[in-house]
Simulated scan of single mutants.
Amino acid sequence: MADEHEEESVWPVQDQIAAYLRDGILNGDFPPGEKLPSSRELHGMFGAAAQTIRNAITILEKEGLAYTRRGAGVYARQHRQRTMEPASYKNPPGDGGKYQWIAAAEQKGLSAKSELLSVGEVVPPVAIQEAFSLSMGEVALLRRQVLYLDDQPCELVEVYIPLDLAQGTPIMENQKIRGGVGRVLTEAGLPPLRCVDKVAARWPTPEQASALRMPTKLPVLRQFRVTYSVDDKPIQAEIMAKAGHLYELRYDF
């Protein structure tokens, strides 16, 4: 197997080993409390030196996926990856109460919260300009926040709103909005009727890695969503960077 890995991958061997073990833990092939393959077995599979294998285990320990029992080996830890259903969280709370994702987390025994980082007018990325049909240099409103599960930052959210829809509303204010931006737009006669999501795995930007406290060199799930209202008018666009070791997305068709 060592030759196979060398031919197919340009990754450092320690990253290959970490990826193999990580996939097994997240897929349930190595259940919580089960001993992971030994150094001898991993050497046979990857042809790796003892220190390289140890480096791979250290990566998994930093990610909270494995732990070492001195003299007994390395074991899989109960992982913290949560399943999110984006289609279930489109609409704002009807009574201006809790967001659906917060209520869903609490039903699972988790604590969930958001922290507003900033609110301001910016020239948005090209993808946002195209979604809103903005001309070059035209600004939109940006609201940035971090979402937490059990005090662990799990998602950096950037919400862009066309300036003509935000002006004169609480959306412009540098404070949290009860019921969120969606409630304000809905009350203005612009309810969310259709969402288009594009999801890709990418290496995090330095800002994303810092905000999410990424423990190792892991990708993030980048979810780009445009929300449309009456007459298919785009009313907001979001760039959501989700920590790859904490999230998976579920879609039912």
Rank of each mutant, 00 (worst) to 15 (best):
A104T: 08
E106R: 14
K108Q: 15
K108D: 12
S111C: 06
A112R: 00
A112K: 00
S114R: 12
E115Q: 12
L116T: 07
L116S: 11
V119A: 10
V119G: 04
G120R: 06
V122T: 03
V122R: 05
V123G: 09
V126Y: 15
I128R: 01
Q129M: 12
E130K: 13
A131M: 09
M136F: 10
G137M: 09
V139G: 04
A140L: 02
L142C: 03
R144W: 05
Q145M: 14
Q145Y: 13
L147I: 13
D150Y: 01
D151W: 05
C154I: 13
E155M: 15
V159E: 07
V159G: 05
Y160W: 14
I161D: 01
I161P: 02
L163C: 06
L165N: 01
A166I: 13
A166S: 07
I171D: 01
E173G: 07
K176R: 13
K176F: 07
I177G: 07
G180V: 07
G182F: 06
G182K: 05
R183P: 00
L185S: 03
A188Q: 13
L190K: 11
L190E: 01
P191E: 01
P191Y: 06
L193D: 02
L193H: 03
L193V: 10
R194F: 12
C195L: 06
V196S: 09
K198R: 12
A200H: 06
A200D: 14
R202I: 14
W203D: 14
T205K: 01
T205Q: 06
E207M: 07
Q208Y: 01
A211C: 10
R213A: 14
P215I: 06
T216W: 14
P219W: 10
R222Q: 11
F224H: 05
V226Y: 01
Y228S: 08
V230H: 06
